[in-house]
């Protein structure tokens, strides 16, 4: 028992004493953009939907993660690239990702943009195809509008003759 308690004590001491980046907990894109100075170079957690194309670089990739307000650029090692199956677009709801990484207010490596250098990526909810059903109302309105358009053209042709 004493051995067990001492182990917990040692592990806790290591965690407390080791220098580490402050983890700011989960933050939103608005917070990151509006309070960028506060989060600069900090370890943060950010969650959102992977959208658009993945930009491939040599050993890394860029994925844009949208939390419902803004999309933030996430720079991640190539091994994480394969795990993202769905990216948000008109046809798909992208994978919901939880990113842990270092936030940069003006990344010195990437031309001064706001970005997150990911250390860990988890898929919270997998994406899926979006079915866009045709609305009956729109079909009816289309037919009606086409009819009116046809009548207008006919009227113009008749007037010209």
């Amino acid at each position: 028992m004493i051995k067990y308690i001492s182990k917990i004590f040692i592990i806790s001491a290591i965690f407390l004493l080791l220098p580490r980046a402050d983890c700011q907990g989960q933050v939103s894109s608005s917070e990151l953009i509006n309070r960028a100075d506060e989060f600069d170079q900090q370890l943060i957690s950010y969650q959102g939907e992977a959208i658009g194309e993945i930009v491939k670089t040599n050993d890394y990739a860029w994925v844009n993660v949208y939390d419902g307000t803004n999309a933030i650029s996430v720079h991640l090692p190539a091994q994480f690239r394969g795990m993202i199956k769905y990216r948000g677009s008109y046809n798909y709801r992208g994978d919901e990702l939880k990113i842990s990484g270092i936030f940069n207010r003006a990344c010195p490596q990437h031309g001064g943009i706001i970005d997150i250098h990911a250390q860990a990526v988890n898929i919270i909810r997998p994406g899926s195809p979006i079915r866009h059903g045709v609305e009956k109302k729109k079909v009816e309105l289309s037919i009606f509008a086409l009819l009116i358009a046809f009548l207008s053209v006919a009227m113009a042709v008749r007037r010209k003759r």
């Binding site: 729109k138 509008a145 009116i148 207008s152």
Partner: peptide, 23 residues
Amino acid sequence: HAVVYDFIIGFSAAVSLGYFLIA
């Protein structure tokens, strides 16, 4: 396909207004 109707409605509205005014 769902988007096609948005443009049919827009197109028809523009044609209707245009040819009505021309006539």
